[in-house]
Structures are given as structure tokens and as C-alpha cells.
Design a protein around this nucleic acid. Structure first.
Lengths: 209, 209
DNA sequence: ACTTTTGAACTGACTGGTCAGTGCAAAAGT
DNA sequence: ACTTTTGCACTGACCAGTCAGTTCAAAAGT
């Protein structure tokens, strides 16, 4: 997990402080938005002095940007791992998509605040971290697109499918369903939600059960 | 004192001013977020003095809240109309869902900024307009849920489907695909995007072409 | 006709408060 | 020894909301 540290040579102590700041920032920004969240709040929630924030990050924006990179990195790794595991176990491409849906749900289950914040920022324009966000988004979506393309090549998926758009739609399906789950029916189990989405993926909605 | 107006509770002039403020606010907030957008900016973009904003709306939050209500109202009407039209023309429930997907795309095509802003705010907690948002969200999602339930009752959809979750997933599919379309491939036609989503809806993705 | 009054709509300078970021000496940790 | 954190006072920019005053078209008065 500490694989991608931004500043090589950072001590363990420093890394721990940064982690605390990430955790404090992610929930506050998810709740209130970037601009409405103050550096004082972040420091207080992290149990750290304000000066420490600026000792560790050049600015509020930079803290946020690194937080984004860090979080999407975790998601991308998780998606890729799910796809590779399915491959290794000899599953089909639909199985791989299904495994990635589950990986997505697990991620959102564990980091709901990060997901929320990511969605809120993704389609904004004219913001400082816009380019960072695009790069990082593409890394994640590319994993889904890759599986779709392999599926088409293998004859498992129709050649008519629009790979980027279908990937976006699948991501959206999981994202919105999961955020709704966490926001409005948090008592439901992950398996339950996963089953509902699997059904949708495999076109078992129309037609008798 | 004239008491006869076209709009109850506001003169035509006043209504025109409010409309200008909505239009100015929606793009600015979509780009920058609520907190990062200043009332001065909104007023300037609307070509109106700052005081006018406060003459027409109690506060920045209230302006935003009414903007949300107004926008989601348009969407809900459009979805309902699409469902009813399909019904009237004797279409199936899948046809109705398909028509609603198109209605959603048309809406997002016309009001991309509003959509963006809505998505950015929907899952936030602890905000002033949280309750407004929930009510308004439910109105829109209920239309989709209604069609799903009727489809289940008519035996067209599996009884196993999870209505609220499937509705959320469908909305997410359209939302994310459309926002990606507008953000990253704006040159594509609505028909094109609609066709890709239809295919996904009808489970014509897996399985040979 | 024509003058005067009314009031809704609008204006923009101003106020009180907030917040990102700075500076730095002392303390704590490794 | 040196890195990291603390605590806290300070600054300057920025911003939501206010308010005394202006505009103007329609109603009332003559």
C-alpha cells in the first residue's frame, strides 16, 4: 500500500502523518467539498498542527491532488488484480467483468468518502487538478476497456459494442448503484448488491427469472 | 398597484432576471463548485448587480436550491412523458426504459452543466440543501422504478430483480456514459450514444454479434 | 392632458468576518 | 545531529450579505 510514496526518502514518521492527513481530508472534502473545507479543519481532524500540513504539502491543492492520485491508484490496482486473477483461473471475460464489478464494490465499501469526492470532481472543468484527474481516470477506465477489447477479440462480446462508451456505462452502473447503496440502504450486504448488478450485466433482467 | 401578472408571485421582469441568474449560476457552479463560486461572479455573468441577486433570492444557498428543484423538475417531467408516450403507443416495458434512456440523454445533451452539478452534490452529506436534493432525486428515480415494477408485474422482467438498485444502476449507466460523452467525445451524435446504451440494456453485449 | 406619487426592481459601495498561507522559536522524536 | 512537529500570532485577500439611494413605469390626482 505504501508502494507509491510521493517523496522518496520520506521517513516512516512523515508517511504516517501524511496518511493521517489524507484520511482527515478525504472525509471532510467528501462531506463539504474542497473549497468549503478549511486547512484548519483538516489539521484538527488529523490531530496535527496547521504548520505540519504545510511542512508536508506545498498547499491545500497539492494535498488534494496527491490524495486523488493515491486513491485512484488503489482502485486501479484492485481492478487489475481482479481481472488478472480471473484470467489465471481460466474464467471468461464476463467473469472478469463480474470480478471487477465486485472489486469496485469492495473498494467503494471500504472508501465511500473517496469515491464520493472523486465523482464530485471528475467532470469539473477549469480546476487546478483537472489534468491529474484525467490521467488517473484514464488509468482506471483503461482496465475495463482492456477486458472489453479482449472479449471482442476472443469473440465473446459482440463486435458492435462501443468499447469506451460501454466501459464508461459499466463504471457508472457500479458507481451510482454503490453510492446509492451506501447512502440510502447501508444495511444491505455487498453480496446482495453484487448479485443485483451481475444480473443486470448478464442481461438477465428482461425475460422471466 | 398592479395585481395582475402572468406569473403569480412575480412580474415578468422579475422572472426574466431569475432565469438569467439560474443560467449564470448553473455553469459557474458546474465548473467550480458551489463554494468556489462567488455571488459577485454570478451577478456579473448574469449582467446584473449583486444586490439584485439578494433581491430575488434570500441567499446564495437558496438560489442554488431553487435551481436544483427547477432542473430536476424538468428532468422528471421529461422521463415521465417518455414513459407515458411509450405506454400510449403500445410499447413494451423495455421500450419504455429505452425511451427514458433517450430522454435522459436528450436532457443531459441540453443541460450538461446542470447534470454535472447535480452529480457533484447528490451524495454529499451535511449540506444545507441535502433534504431538497433527496426529495427531488426520489421523484426522478421513482419514475424508473415505476416502469421496472410494472414490468415485473406484467411478467416482462424477472421477479428476482432488485427494483431500487436496478433503477439506480440504470440511472448511473446513462449519467456516467453521457457525462463522458459530453466531456471526452462531444462530437459523437446522440443516436450513436443511445444505440450503445440500448445494446447494453438489452443484454446484447455478451453473446456473439 | 399633465403632473405627482407610489413601489417594485435594481444598484454598488461598504462591512464584518473568514481563511490560506507565513514565520519562527521551542519541543519532540529518531 | 538532524528531521519533524508544535503552537500561535499575523497578514492580506477575498467574500456573503447589507443598505441607503436610484430608476422608471404605471396608478392616482387635478
Amino acid at each position: 500500500m505504501e508502494r507509491s510514496s510521493t517523496t522518496p526518502g520520506g521517513s516512516a514518521r512523515r508517511e504516517a502523518t501524511r496518511q493521517k492527513l489524507y484520511e482527515a481530508a478525504v472525509t471532510l472534502i467528501a462531506e463539504q467539498g474542497f473549497s468549503a473545507t478549511t486547512v484548519d479543519e483538516i489539521a484538527e481532524r488529523a490531530g496535527v498542527a496547521k504548520g505540519t500540513v504545510y511542512y508536508n504539502f506545498a498547499s491545500k491543492s497539492v494535498l488534494f491532488e496527491e490524495l486523488l492520485r493515491h486513491g485512484v491508484g488503489l482502485l486501479t490496482d484492485s481492478l487489475r488484480e481482479a481481472a488478472e486473477r480471473t484470467e489465471r483461473e481460466g474464467g471468461s471475460k464476463v467473469d472478469a467483468l463480474d470480478a471487477m464489478i465486485r472489486a469496485g464494490l469492495v473498494f467503494i465499501d471500504r472508501y465511500p468518502a473517496f469515491t464520493q469526492l472523486y465523482v464530485a470532481e471528475l467532470w469539473r472543468t477549469n480546476r487546478a487538478w483537472q489534468s491529474t484527474l484525467m490521467v488517473v481516470r484514464q488509468q482506471a477506465v483503461a482496465v475495463v476497456e482492456g477486458v472489453l477489447r479482449e472479449g471482442v477479440a476472443a469473440g465473446e462480446f459482440s463486435e458492435e459494442i462501443d468499447v469506451p462508451l460501454t466501459a464508461a456505462a459499466l463504471v457508472g452502473m457500479v458507481l451510482v448503484a454503490a453510492l446509492d447503496w451506501k447512502s440510502f440502504q447501508p444495511e444491505r450486504s455487498l453480496d446482495d448488491v453484487h448479485a443485483a448488478l451481475s444480473r443486470l450485466l448478464q442481461g438477465r433482467v428482461s425475460g422471466r427469472g
